[in-house]
Simulated assay, not measured.
Amino acid sequence: MKTTLTKTGKPRKVQQRRLEREKLIKDAAIELLKVTDIHELSLYDVAEKAEIPPSSLYHIYPSVDELLAGLTEQSGDIIYELMKSIAINGTFNSWRELLRLWFDAIQHHHNHCSYTSKLLLGVSGSHVLAETKAARFSSGRQRSFELLNDLFELPAMPEKVDVFNIARLIGNQIFSFSFRLEGEITDLHKEEAYLAVIGYLQNYFPRYMPRKVMPQEDEVAN
């Protein structure tokens, strides 16, 4: 009988079992992060929560840092998909209105998924996690630009100023400040973050930007 291989060269059933185990481990870690701090998370506790042998967990995630890095990537992807869904299905007439919807949705997600805030807004506990967060931040900047570029006729941006990166940094810093101070993103700090980002982007965006013809879902920043 011929064995079907994946792109990684592993038998498909083996790869599927690994993916299922990864999800089991991540789900267990998320449940623990809802009630504990990142610095207190241990692989042994995760294995116990997932009801799998610690050796099986170590095979996939040799360290807590690598597990947290995987969860950080997953959290960033969830927020991007949320933004993408709003870009496709939301009701807005301007880039300001779109950003308002994004800020509202991101606040709601963070405040109802506390582990996401711990991973993305909390203090990085290690070099590995800090590098992962930096990479996700850069990726988020690019994908935000692509979403806006799919929807609006963006003006030319200055070559020596990374406008979108700075805008994301402004909003993220205020969100992080709110989370560390209040344990959540408050309405006040969400509004401050929104106004700060809008105020900065107004230096480069006109008050009105023409909308492009709305692409289909599979065409938006695909």
Rank of each mutant, 00 (worst) to 15 (best):
R96V: 15
K160S: 12
K118H: 04
V161N: 08
G122T: 07
F152I: 01
R141I: 01
A167R: 04
L120M: 14
A135I: 04
R141A: 07
T91S: 15
A135H: 11
S126A: 08
I88N: 09
K118G: 05
G125K: 10
L101K: 15
L169S: 15
I79G: 02
G125T: 12
D104W: 15
N111K: 09
A156W: 02
N165P: 00
V163Y: 04
L181V: 13
L147A: 01
T132H: 05
M83L: 13
F103M: 06
I86K: 03
E97T: 07
A130L: 12
D104G: 00
C113L: 07
F152G: 02
I78L: 11
G125D: 06
W102P: 00
L151G: 02
V163G: 10
T116K: 04
I79V: 14
S94Q: 06
S94M: 09
Q173R: 10
K133P: 00
K160I: 03
S94C: 05
Y80S: 04
L147R: 11
L82W: 01
F92T: 08
R143M: 12
L121D: 08
T91P: 00
G122L: 07
Q107W: 05
N93W: 06
N89A: 09
S144M: 14
A105W: 09
R143F: 04
A135M: 11
F179I: 05
R100N: 11
L129I: 15
G140Y: 05
S138T: 14
P155N: 03
I170F: 13
R143S: 12
D162S: 08
K118N: 04
I79A: 05
A135S: 12
L99F: 14
G171S: 11
G90A: 12
